[in-house]
Structure formats: C-alpha cells, structure tokens
Design a protein around this nucleic acid. Sequence first.
DNA 1: CTGAAAGCGCTTACAG
DNA 2: CTGAAAGCGCTTACAG
Lengths: 324, 324
Amino acid sequence: MTAATVSRALSDHPEISAKTKAIVKETAQRLDYKANRIASSLRSGKTNVIGVLIPTAENAFFGSVIHGITNLASKHGYSVLIHECDELYELEVKGIQTFIGARVDGIIASLSRNTLDYEHFLDVKRRNIPLVFFDRVPNLDIPSVVIDGFNGSFWATQHLIDQGYKRIAHISGPLYINTFNDRFRGYEAALKANNIALDKNLIYNGNISIESGMEGTRQLLELPEPPDAIFVAEDFTALGILKQLKISKINVPEQFGVFGFCNDMFSEHTTPSLSTMDQQTVLMGQEAFKLLNRIIENGNEESSSRIVVTPLPVIRESSLKKNY
Amino acid sequence: MTAATVSRALSDHPEISAKTKAIVKETAQRLDYKANRIASSLRSGKTNVIGVLIPTAENAFFGSVIHGITNLASKHGYSVLIHECDELYELEVKGIQTFIGARVDGIIASLSRNTLDYEHFLDVKRRNIPLVFFDRVPNLDIPSVVIDGFNGSFWATQHLIDQGYKRIAHISGPLYINTFNDRFRGYEAALKANNIALDKNLIYNGNISIESGMEGTRQLLELPEPPDAIFVAEDFTALGILKQLKISKINVPEQFGVFGFCNDMFSEHTTPSLSTMDQQTVLMGQEAFKLLNRIIENGNEESSSRIVVTPLPVIRESSLKKNY
DNA sequence: CTGAAAGCGCTTACAG
DNA sequence: CTGAAAGCGCTTACAG
C-alpha cells in the first residue's frame, strides 16, 4: 500500500474501497498516526488556519469575541492563530506579517486604537487573503461586523427621556473612533426627535476610563444648569460617573439617571446596578467568522458587506426613575 | 542567484557577504516577499508555533493569562494557536490532536473542569512535545505553573483574625479540584496556627457562582452560632456573599468581614469594595511561556519543575474592621 | 562566499 | 480501485 492510498483512505476519497479504508483507519489508530498538517498545507495550498488580530486579550470584550470565533472556527475545521497588538501600530503590522508568512486562509481583525495607516491591510487585500474586520473598523471597503451604536444610543437616550429625566448629558469616548462617534450621533438624534435642543455644555469628551467618568461628572455638576441624567458611551466611564455621584451624595436613579454602553462584567454588580446596552460580543465573533468563512468559500463577491449587530438594552436600576 | 542564497541571506547566515545580503533584502522588500513559513517548517522540523489550550476565553482569568503568554511568545518569535475546550473533555482531546497535527513546538494547557483521564496528555509526552500546565494541573509529573493557594489563603485568614473577627467561616470551590483544595487547607492551617478549632459547620461547599455565595451565606447566618467573617475561595462567590449580607442588613466590614480570592475585574467596584488575593494572571502566563521555552531549548531536563506564583493581597474595604 | 541537489511529508493529476 | 511520480517552497549538508 502506498502513501497515496493511505492519504486517500484517511480523507475518505470516494474511489477507495470501504475495505481498504477500514484497514488504513484501524492501523492509523493503532500506530497513533496523526497526519502532518504542515506537509498537507504546503501541498494543498490550504492551511485551515485563520488569524485573529486583536488589541488585547486582557479585556472581557475581546475575550468574549474570541470565544465566539474559536468555537465556530473549530467546528468548521479551522485552527485559530491569535495575535495581540497591545494597541500598538507596530505590533499590529507585525501580526499581519506573521499571518501572511503563516499563509493563513483568512484574517479577522479589530484595529488598534492608534492605527491611522492601513497599508498592511491593503497588502493583505493585494494577496487576496480574505479579511474581515469587527468592532473597530477602518474607512475602507472591506467586509466588517459592527455594533449598531447609533440606534442603540438613540434607544438609551429615548429611555432616559421616557423615564422623565429632563436634562440629559453625554460623556463620550474619543470621537475620532467611529464606534464612539456613532454613539454620540445616536444621542444627538434622539434629542432632536424629541425636540430637545442640543446643549454643547452637556457634552463631555471622555477617554474610556473611570477617571474621565468622575471628572466629567464633576464638571457637569458644576454647570449653572446641571444635567439630571447622563448617557455614557462606555461602562468603565459609567462606573466613574456612579462613583462621583455617590461622592456628591446624589441619589441614582431618583435624582439622577445613568445609562451605559457595553454591558461589561461588572455592570450588573455596581450599586445601583447599571442600565446599559449589551454588545452581544459572542454573537459578534460568530458573525465575523461566518462572514469570513463565506468569503473563503465563495471568493470575494461580498467584498463590501457589513453585518450590523443590534445591541440589546439591559435595564437595571440606574435609569429607573419611574420606580420612585 | 539561487534560492539557497536568498534563504541564507534573509536568515543572516554568517557566510553570506554583506553586499549580497543587502541586495537580497532590498529586493525582498521591494517585491513584498514574505517567506512561506509552512515550507520552512516542513523542512526544518520547527514550526515556531505553540498551542495554548484553555477552558474558555470568555473569562477574564484566562484572557489575562493568554495576554501574558502571547506577548512573550511573540517577542521570542513564536505564534500562538489557541484552542478552547468549553470545559468539555471531548473538545480538550480534540484540541490536543489538532496541536499534534499542526506539529506545534510546545503546548501550554489548563485542564477542563471535568477532565479525569489524561491519556491525550500522555500521548503528547510520548511524542516528546514539550508540555506545560498552568493553574488547573493534573496529578502527573509534568512541569507546571500554579498559584500558591495554600499560603495565600493562610494569609487571608490570618488577616481576618488580626482584624478582630472571631468566627471565620469558609465557602469553598469544588474540593476535588486541587486549586480549591489548597485554599481550604490554607484556611484550615491558619486557624490551627492560631489555636482556633475547626468547626465543620462553618464550612460550606460552593461551586464558583454568585448563587452559591448567597445560599452559603444564608445557611451560615442561620447557624446557632453564626460566623462574623467569611474567607471565600473565589470572587464571584464573594460577590454573592456581599449581596446576601446587604439583603440581611449586616454591615460590612463593621459587623462582618469578607475576604475573596482572584481579584476579578469587578472586585474593586463592589460596595463595599472587596479585599482579595490577586492571582497575578499576566505573570502566570509569562512564567508558563518562559518555562515552556526553557524546555524547548534545553530538552526535558526540568520535567518535574513546578513554578509557584505568589498571590498578592489586595486589602480593600470588606475586611477592615479595625477602621471602625 | 555561493551553487546544485536532495528531501521534509504530504496530495493529486495521470496511468493502468 | 490503486500505484508511480511530480511537486508544494523552503533549508541544509556537501562541493567547489
């Protein structure tokens, strides 16, 4: 029996007899033989490996997306190479180069915080390696999976209005990042839809941190006409808001409403518990893999497709004025 | 110029002239040439890939360890294949098989919750693939990185005693898992060191969940002689304890002390904030990679080495009776 | 200092 | 239904 026959038997080639297959498989099992996927990749041109590039795994959001990706990938016979760039442009480029060298069948990526140059991703396109972005996506015509920050923020702001809050402020994330800009625009649109004039004083530019939530809240409270609610673009910042309100002895939600965005691990456990928009992170990972898999199988026809994941409102204590 | 020369020039082979190297490198850059690592792996017998097997990435602990591993791995020229087993034995076996097929240079693994059979890991040893365990380790003579749960728990219990708490209960994790058994024994030893008799009624077997923390606390409070403090093996359970104490209107830390273990994301942000032992997760990942790397480089001489990471106490509000 | 040749372990078109 | 042969793209011992 030749190597060719063994190879065909193990991959269930239709022209091999059932008897031969049985013998080969039994023997392979007995000898604990595991085909060398490196050799098979070299010959077949398919590695069955995808690369996943993320800013950092030390963050529940990305961990959860990874979970969504690897689970599905494994079911479809793919292994996952992971590369963290630590929010550094240089490491992001290095990660892409590693993936290219490894001849991955496709790449799923989320941009580092300070990536402004996309040359490394254009290189990927030039080599016809399927590429999908999620969450932090570039302004390029490349398939991606994003959260519907606009409508989610519209919903949250409307909810605060419906609960009877009158002056609703916004603490944003860095507005040059699309994700946070969308949330700001959703807030803005909800005010307009309710004929509430946008007051520039009620907008504080935060930077995704507890500290900026505290500082923003302090500044907003010192206004001649302070707000009585805040819609905030991210939950760590929301935590800072809750901390500062506690320090300032302002009762949430009776006197002041807070609505976040992300539904982080801790959001359920703050006092009071935080109303927020759940990002459906696992679903996001799954959608990213499904999209990549479709592109790998069908070629680049869906090059400009964009999957929009709807965030789910999670109403907890911090926004329920009407209960009082 | 032949492929051989190009190969040597790109890998800085000492016998190649500086001039040739310069030409080759410039040309490679211009043509955007990236060596095929698949082919080089096949020929050289080294893939420069390590496999990391974890129960789930949807958990801050493992995400953080991954962070520690990938960072160092990348610096040492390794890529990381990741495989989640979702706490399922079958997927754990599948992950190991995938790693073997991919001919990884080494494996870092943490056991699934219900792995009792180690045949797949013995297979790895038989093939002489370097293997390191972390956190959840099997009873095998295989290198590993673990947290010093015994001494950490001793320290925490002693701290509660020093703060003046008199009857200190323990809510454990599943005691058949070494990690949690160590913590129970540390608690036990601290009592003994202080001549406090172990009261079996003060020990509740939890299962790493908010619910078990609440239920355990309820039962402990109903005791004829209820405790006035709890050392708990894990922070989610601690969260349940805090919730139940709030419901039962018992003030922490004045009337009742709570000390956890893990230092999860949320532990800093509970009310009151939770005193706990930090597991140094990133350090754990780094140590695991360093150990693996040493074994890859020096062969299996350190086959029974065990790295013990010291947990760091993080004293917050929930255990500071003396402040009152 | 560089080249020619073999070979890593598979897969696959071609032949029978 | 199975075999013989070529080849994927590198690396490396050997030769010069």
